[in-house]
Design a protein around this nucleic acid. Structure first.
Length: 466
RNA sequence: UCCUCCCUAGCUCAGUUGGUUAGAGCAUCUGACUGUUAAUCAGAGGGUCGCUGGUUCAAGUCCAGCGGGGGGAGCCA
């Protein structure tokens, strides 16, 4: 927008020392205080968690205009940058002119100066980005997205765009949302009266992706190092603080990596991302540390400084059985570990992130590389304090016969995965990969407790508002 | 989906063994104050106690069903 004065972001103004400089800034009013002579307006434009203080000598301003400057309103200010005589801020703006872009009726604007519960803010998700908490979370979320692309780019990976609509449910990662253009009131029927999907848009039954992994493997068999980073959908009726129906997932896939290389990558990437947050989002982390989780920054630093504990599923089961700990679910070799077991290992036994490997094949997916013992597969799960499984991955089975046998054992229709099997037929290669839940990463980085508070507009069962 | 807890003013909550006209802080409005920092001080307005039914002389309070939300579990990332 054309202005006489140059427009600045609050983030830059707070660092500026050009006292006397004429500037313009635009943003949303957080609070207004004052008396008959002078008003103090705390303005925030989302560029940084801090507000900047606007000082308005009321004799210079139309009373009617100043009445419109209320919590939540949007204004543009022309003024002079001055050193602040008051406590609490290095600089402030002596206002010369205030233009009100948008009012916010104080009697019904839901956000107040006081703190709100996160549950209440979820009900007004259209306005919660204007709070300090969500400003911090959303800036960190952005920084982590950027850092993920930077990390992979700097390490020779290529960003592969896996499809969102897919006809393959072969991975069995979860229930799919169906995608169709058929008339649900009267769909076309076959002679056997089943729904005739050959008449559907794609000529077959399709759904939203539950994982880009299979497609990522196809890419890795050409570009060597690839990753996907996109939305992922699970139509599970999951009601927990760790699950969303629509979430974002990062799935690197690497040719010529074995399970050990895979673990090295996972650990290095997670540490890189934590370090990136500390280096680039410290103001926001400090705020979250103060308001929600006083151990947050210490925990982040601890992650960077200590190697993750790596051990096999079998050893983990031994430790759990020898622990003398009373678990709600008994531990036995062959059963999947429960949340309480994972938490015990991470939070009570090792006191640091744990990578578990070599799980029984029965409890893992068909594509994982089979070990020589005939019982286990080269899976790896990275378990983090507070949030549990943050990464699930494996070395993949590259042997055509072994993979085919496993597919038959599990009754997966061969016609659905012929293209996947083809990669093992033509120039197969040892390879590995994993999936990192983006929102779970953000949970860990921000110290937030509920996954619905680290995505702008959460999608969960019975909730697609906003 | 299962277990469990919660639902009282715009927000956060109190409300005794069931008993007069349901309270507080903050927010809002009005007024006071020459620089405030979640400003302060004084006053005012603001309620279908989630909804429906039941027990009772009497229900915010007890019971049942329904709805919404939190936490735990499962599914997983």
């Amino acid at each position: 927008m054309k202005e006489d004065f140059t427009t600045y972001k609050v983030k830059d103004l707070l660092k500026l020392k050009d006292f006397g400089k004429e500037i313009n800034l635009k943003g949303w009013v957080r609070t207004k205080r004052g008396n008959k002579q002078v008003a103090f307006i705390a303005l925030n434009d989302g560029s940084i968690i801090h507000n900047i203080q606007i000082v308005a000598d009321l004799e210079k301003f139309d009373e009617e205009i100043m009445k419109l400057v209320t919590t939540g309103s949007c204004i543009s200010v022309n003024g002079i940058l001055v050193e602040s005589p008051g406590q609490g801020q290095p600089v402030e703006i002596q206002a010369k002119n205030i233009e009100v872009y948008g009012t916010a009726d104080a009697t019904n604007f839901p956000l107040q100066k006081k703190g709100h519960t996160l549950e209440f803010l979820r009900e007004i998700a259209h306005l919660r980005p204007r709070t300090n908490t969500f400003g911090a979370v959303l800036r960190i979320r952005h920084a982590m997205s950027f850092a993920i692309h930077k990390y992979f780019n700097d390490n020779g990976f290529y960003y592969l765009h896996a499809p969102i609509i897919t006809g393959s449910d072969a991975e069995g990662a979860g229930a799919m949302f169906q995608v169709t253009t058929l008339d649900l009131d009267k769909p076309p029927r076959t002679e056997e009266s089943a729904v005739d999907y050959s008449k559907d848009f794609f000529g077959k039954r399709t759904g939203l992706t539950v994982s880009g992994q299979l497609e990522a493997e196809l890419g890795a068999m050409a570009l060597s190092l690839v990753y996907t980073f996109g939305p992922t959908f699970r139509a599970e009726n999951s009601n927990t603080p760790r699950h969303l129906a629509e979430f974002w997932m990062i799935e690197p896939e690497m040719a010529f990596y074995d399970i050990s290389d895979n673990m090295d990558l996972a650990e290095d990437m997670l540490k890189y991302l934590v370090q990136y947050a500390i280096d680039n989002c410290y103001d926001d982390l400090e705020f979250l540390n103060k308001m929600y989780d006083t151990e947050l920054i210490d925990r982040l630093k601890f992650i960077i400084e200590n190697p993750f504990e790596r051990l096999s599923y079998t050893k983990a089961v031994d430790i759990l059985m020898a622990s003398g700990q009373k678990f709600e679910f008994p531990v036995s070799w062959g059963a999947d570990l429960q949340s309480e077991h994972e938490r015990y290992l991470v939070e009570k036994h090792f006191h640091k992130p744990v990578i578990l490997t070599d799980y029984p094949k029965e409890i893992k997916a068909f594509y994982m590389k089979q070990n020589d013992d005939g019982k286990t597969v080269r899976a790896m799960d990275v378990l983090f304090p507070k949030i549990g499984e943050i990464i699930g991955g494996s070395q993949r089975e590259e042997d055509y016969e072994k993979l085919l046998n496993r597919i038959h054992e599990l009754d997966i229709p061969e016609k659905d995965v012929w293209w996947y099997l083809d990669t093992r037929k033509y120039g197969t290669a040892p390879h590995s990969g994993f999936g990192l839940g983006f929102e779970r990463l953000i949970l860990f980085i921000t110290g937030m407790a509920n996954i619905r508070d680290v995505i702008p507009f959460p999608r969960t069962p019975q909730n697609a508002e906003f």
